[in-house]
Design a protein around this nucleic acid. Structure first.
Lengths: 333, 333
DNA sequence: AATTATTTTGTAAGCGCTTACATTGAGTAG
DNA sequence: CTACTCAATGTAAGCGCTTACAAAATAATT
């Protein structure tokens, strides 16, 4: 592996000059630039990013924390963030926190130890306090899908209350009055917000919320099935089921089908997130669009603007609005 | 950000000693170890991984190249690789190549410039020659889902010919004789291998391959739909359709349903890959399991063994065998 | 107690770059 | 022709660590 020293020797110039042509910042005469470039090419020189980072205190990489490396939701997020950042020559270092406080903490410390220039976090388990300290510690940080008090300017969130409201409102507008709900784990803010929206829509329509109509799942497909079974017993004859995410909706659909319901004629189902596979389902899932793509993009632009002085082509917004994606699983009553 | 120097000062020892307790390699007396650890804790010291890497020529990170950051297949791969490597304290740096020669090339150079200790590549676009040079250049490299001549010991592949064979064989065994096929882009080895397996199964059953029964897709869902439409015209009345991956199978299912076919009574469909969502489809997709999980795991173990001297808990294998996952889309004739 | 072996610690030279500052060498003006 | 600019290049001091080697402290041996 050739070093800058060998290049400088081959080109007959000093280290500093080679560095200058590499970074293109200072002025170098055409002639010497050429010499250096030739030397680089003939040596197959490749700068050592590690050494560059150490010397310049810039890594040109931003850390991205996601909960999992698989799954549509995070796939979208990673993909979007990478896309935007790569266009400006920045790199993304991805880690997974697995919705576990210690592991998220570790992952963030890892990213910091790699001296990422900024962090984009989809942190679900770590405390608000920890995040505040992080921000105070001068690492540029952005938080996705979580609103932390006093850190509003660092957070990019979707209005989950509104999303939950819209989902249930859609069912009500279609004539349903007996509506069941499968929530996410309620200790999570997004899950409880969506449920709050659900209740609000019921109330607004003059329907009373029955605790038997609620099943608390964990956002995974299997609890959609469980929820469906459970609700059939506790809250029989409901005609619509709202699920707090698409995975659980898919599970519920499977269970409903096994129980002999035709969707949507006998049972309507509404999901949440609008992940990619929701349109592969049969019938295609009616759901609430969670603008994860837009949030990821925004987070990336925020970083470019605040850390790398690249002005964002779009206005930075922090609150995103969900909307109904009307497909085939919500039937009129 | 505290440095090792400040720690050494606070603890009243030399730099070297601090470094020793950090790395736990050399012997340090209990007393000084304690002093140093206290100093670290009180300063909130966090080693600078960049500096460590530069000095030690070890980054403890392995580069992973995937084609895309989203999608079930890559999600599985990333997740598995990360899981195995993290258990040994190694980190994964993920990049996307987007099935484009230049971008894959760039991505690999990026990983090299970050001085990854090893590379795990799902490289589809870059040339065999380039990969050989890479291996020769002393960077430990592993290739997933691609067999490169002379690099067998670095490759982890599934037997695609056999997979294609099994898919079609399953249809034949179910009594089908008029079988259509939607392939992946045939310039890709895996796509052409699967097709070869398909032909082999036909031949073995005494059926002749009709070029009208083939539609060349691009592995994306939309070409599954297109393929279905196209084949209805060129190869009418087929009773089974084999698709070279699950995405296209899903697209074909949608198109088939729109055309009024009931699956599997009027049309059978077999996919390939067994990605996660294949079981969410309705009916649940009969497909060929592509042991991506096993391959990712193996690749990670190979790296641990060859680069970090961690012995693998499992025997290193390079060829993986696919198998039929019998679900609900293949009907007996 | 003196000598030697062993363990623990310190010293200092890098790792491959960036960058402030010094130096050189033209080009201009007087 | 001398003095003075200003652009182009070079010099050298780090960045925060690791690690060979040397030195010092401690333990073991006679």
């Amino acid at each position: 592996m050739a070093t800058i020293y060998q290049v400088s020797e081959a080109a007959g110039v000093s280290l500093a000059t080679v560095s200058r042509v590499m970074n293109g910042n200072a002025k170098v005469s055409e002639r010497t630039r050429k010499k250096v470039e030739d030397a680089m090419a003939s040596l197959g020189y490749q700068p050592n990013a590690i050494a560059q980072s150490l010397a310049s205190n810039r890594t040109n990489s931003v850390g991205l924390l996601v909960s999992e490396l698989h799954g549509s939701y995070f796939g979208d997020l990673m993909s979007t963030v990478e896309h935007v950042l790569k266009k400006s020559g920045k790199h993304v270092i991805i880690t997974a926190g697995h919705v576990d406080e210690e592991r998220e903490h570790e992952a963030i410390e890892f990213l910091k130890s790699r001296r990422c220039d900024a962090l984009i976090l989809h942190a679900e388990a770590v405390s608000d306090d920890y995040l505040k300290k992080l921000v105070d510690s001068k690492v540029p940080v952005v938080v996705i899908n979580r609103k932390v008090d006093d850190l509003e300017q660092h957070c990019f969130v979707v209005d989950n209350v509104k999303g939950g409201y819209l989902a249930t409102k859609a069912a009500i507008d279609a004539g349903h009055t007996k509506i069941a709900y499968i929530s996410g784990p309620l200790f999570k803010k997004d899950a409880s917000d969506r449920l709050a929206g659900h209740k609000k829509a019921l109330e607004e329509a003059g329907l009373t919320f029955d605790s038997n109509s609620l099943f608390e799942g964990d956002f995974h497909e299997s609890t959609g099935q469980e929820g469906m079974h459970h609700l059939q017993a506790t809250f029989p004859d409901f005609t619509a089921l709202v699920c707090a995410n698409d995975e659980m909706a898919s599970g519920a659909m499977t269970a409903a089908r096994e129980a002999g319901f035709d969707i949507p004629t006998q049972l309507s189902i509404v999901g949440f997130d609008n992940v990619l596979f929701s349109r592969y389902l049969y019938p295609k899932l009616t759901t609430i669009n969670n603008p994860i793509h837009a949030m990821g993009e925004m987070a990336a632009y925020w970083v470019l603007e605040h850390v790398y002085d690249v002005k964002s082509p779009i206005q930075i917004e922090h609150l995103f609005v969900p909307e109904v994606v009307d497909r085939d699983t919500l039937g009129k009553l």
